[in-house]
Amino acid sequence: MEPLSSLEELTQALRCLPSVGPKAAQRMALHLLQHDREGAQRLALALEAAARGVRHCQRCNTFTEDEICTLCRSSKRDATLLCVVETPADLMMVEHTQAYAGLYFVLMGRLSPLDGIGPKEIRLDRLLKRALDGAVREVVLATNFTNEGEATAHYIAELLAARKLKVTRLARGVPVGGELEYVDSGTLAQALRERRLLAN
């Protein structure tokens, strides 16, 4: 079999991206070569640098190029709070709220036995070490409200609760601005079960 031409190789390589099928990959490859050689060079260098330089923060496990990421090094953050999220994208969402001033731990996944992901795969041992560093007083569990995210939160809570740490979970219920008529029944059912006291 003949080796792939550079164009074919590029098209194939682009297909590793999410949402990129054969057609889209071909379109991207042709666009770069036909209309934007400069962009193509830039992309190549950026990819090369990122793939080589980006690693996991020693403290929070998120992506960084340093030993310890800027967020973990910041003196403005509250080191007694540790928020556990599944992915760097989740970390960014929590940051976006501007409602949280503590530090993070990024699991890079969640417990999912049916996908072959257990505590070893998401490095729960590292989270335990991080949470028990002496400075952390409260761990905020912000894993997803899927069965896998819930199971992950449950076991982290079990592991930490025995060690004199306060463990909290994000609240769940009707969204801000939510009208009951349009909220899905599963959410509404759970909001009823987890209703809270306003006056006695």
Partner: peptide
């Protein structure tokens, strides 16, 4: 695999 997950969580608890 679910059985291994249960075992690994118990092991983690003991290590901690």
């Amino acid at each position: 695999f679910s059985r291994r997950v249960v075992r690994d969580i118990q092991a983690l608890d003991e290590i901690a």
